[in-house]
């Protein structure tokens, strides 16, 4: 069976420090999958290897059964891999519409058109506006991204990624730093996303994770500790130890 995203014995070390060790990971088409783990477990490194921002030391990555281990970041995006950033990474001074439209234009292959004004490309603009509307951002299209409240900026992150029509969407802590009322909103929008998109969410907010994910992978010290449906993970003693251990630290 084809997996939307798959890794084989993925390893990464920085000198003597190993941050990913033999990670075998599978994301099924249309999955709602969460990756959790205490701080420093190597979640972000793992995501960065998936997107191609950093190269793994060894191991392989497949996107829809196609090996992409050495493929550039941009090419992976074209193969259907979208992501959001843990730290909000927007075109801050540009209007929200443009933030999304840039992504839509890239996906459509229109970004290198040099003659007709961008604002005359109705097809790009309409698609972007539609996308913003589904995320409840229709009224903010003209505002500069940096002027939006933080919770909405997080949604713009998601909107940009969706503008790429990804088959696989990596959400890196979509609710990081968002007040809890807004977390609820974000979650509602995430739940409405098309079932055709396989979603991998990395999140600290356990409440959000257990409500959203159908499957959870726990990463500890660069290794997969356990993987399974939420009930199993919640009941797993090792997972509790890891998190209780962390809780006493915090």
């Amino acid at each position: 069976m084809a997996f939307a995203l798959q890794t084989e014995k993925l390893c990464k070390s920085f000198g003597a420090l190993t941050v990913a060790e033999q990670i075998d990971f599978r994301l099924e088409p249309g999955a709602r999958h969460a990756l959790i783990g205490p701080n420093g477990a190597g979640k972000t490194t793992f995501v960065n290897m998936l997107t191609g921002a950093i190269a793994p030391t060894s191991g392989k990555i497949f996107l829809n059964d196609q090996e992409v281990t050495r493929t550039s970041q941009a090419a992976r995006v074209r193969l259907g891999l979208g992501r959001t950033f843990q730290i909000t990474t927007l075109f801050r001074s540009l209007p929200v519409l443009d933030n999304v439209a840039l992504a839509v234009a890239e996906r459509r292959g229109d970004a290198q058109r040099m003659w007709r004004p961008a604002s005359a490309h109705r097809e790009i603009i309409d698609e972007s506006l539609e996308l913003l509307a589904t995320l409840g951002l229709a009224d903010d299209a003209a505002a500069a991204a940096q002027d939006l409240p933080y919770g909405k900026q997080r949604l713009v992150e998601v909107a940009i990624a969706l503008g790429l029509r990804p088959k696989v969407l990596l959400l890196d802590e979509p609710a990081a730093g968002v007040p809890s009322a807004d977390t609820e909103k974000i979650l509602r929008h995430l739940e409405k996303l098309s079932a055709e998109i396989a979603i991998l969410i990395i999140e600290h907010d356990m409440d959000l994770v257990f409500r959203f994910a159908q499957r959870i992978t726990v990463l500890v010290q660069g290794q997969v500790l356990v993987e399974g449906p939420p009930e199993e993970i919640a009941a797993d003693k090792r997972v509790r130890d890891v998190y209780l251990g962390e809780a006493t630290h915090a």
């Binding site: 074209r78 992501r83 540009l94 996906r107 290198q112 004004p117 940009i160």
Partner: peptide, 29 residues
């Protein structure tokens, strides 16, 4: 003038504003 108002020009502004993000939306920066 045509260039900067075109999608290409918008894309250039994107690179200036946030290169990381441009990479992430698949632009061969």
């Amino acid at each position: 003038r045509r260039l900067i108002y075109s999608p290409f020009g918008a894309m250039l502004t994107g690179i200036r504003e946030n290169t990381t993000r441009m990479h992430a939306i698949g632009a061969p920066v």
